[in-house]
Design a protein around this nucleic acid. Sequence first.
DNA 1: CGATGAATTGACTTTTACGTAAATCAGGTG
DNA 2: CACCTGATTTACGTAAAAGTCAATTCATCG
Lengths: 128, 128
Amino acid sequence: MREYYTITELTREFGISTRTLRFYEDEGLINPVRRGRTRLYRPSDRHLVRQILRGRRLGFSISEIREIIQVYKAPPGEVGQLHLMIQKIEEKRQHLRQKRRDLEDTLQELDQAEEACVERLAELGVKT
Amino acid sequence: MREYYTITELTREFGISTRTLRFYEDEGLINPVRRGRTRLYRPSDRHLVRQILRGRRLGFSISEIREIIQVYKAPPGEVGQLHLMIQKIEEKRQHLRQKRRDLEDTLQELDQAEEACVERLAELGVKT
DNA sequence: CGATGAATTGACTTTTACGTAAATCAGGTG
DNA sequence: CACCTGATTTACGTAAAAGTCAATTCATCG
Ligand SMILES: [Zn+2]
Ligand SMILES: [Zn+2]
Ligand SMILES: [Zn+2]
Ligand SMILES: [Zn+2]
């Protein structure tokens, strides 16, 4: 496991721009350390980036992603906070389950559409 | 099955604005019929709206949704077109499968985060 | 017929998530 | 040192997806 990644290494690995990484930092999603003025990304920062991009692909907004990231962080020390966090986690799970339903439904519609195509081809006497 | 829905019925059912429905129409996603100037939405239009909103929740852009919707339509009559459509459907499926991976990964991270919270509570001697 | 309330249209505004350009700085190389 | 390459900062720009507002038109009910 590398100790540090430069900003360009991450842009290449994830196919995003430096602007994007700095934007996420500005939004408080990541906090790379600095050597002088240049940013050094730790493996944990890299992992966060991966999680952010996953969230983005799933259609979450930056602030929703921020909420999810809060949850990933070390659990708080206080009992009340812990219960609250567990509650929040459950809420996020609900959102994701809704997305999963949407996803399965869409996949099913695609299956139907494909079947219609295949049938149509069969009617035209074409071997699939 | 109702024959027609008014625009406000659909806005209430789906929790969206009339502006949104007209926007989707302007983008060529739906095509309600008209009685005079007022729009009448058929069950098939309503179904399309449902599919559009699903796509949106999954983070697809309007043009991606437009592509998906093309696929739902009646299959074309020509063999080449049919093969092309089947190919497109497969491509969409790939996108959705990526999203499903993202989704499962995120759910797993949430599980881990919750477990950490529960453990922490146990350490503090709290009954869950 | 006139009032009232829904529907339409068009113009303008807003928010999000970055892109892009310009100026500055830092470190290594010949 | 001069130069080059990369990174940073700041500021402004922009495209997508609506929201908002105002002016009109229609329908219909009393
Ligand atoms: Zn929520
Ligand atoms: Zn369907
Ligand atoms: Zn594609
Ligand atoms: Zn992880």
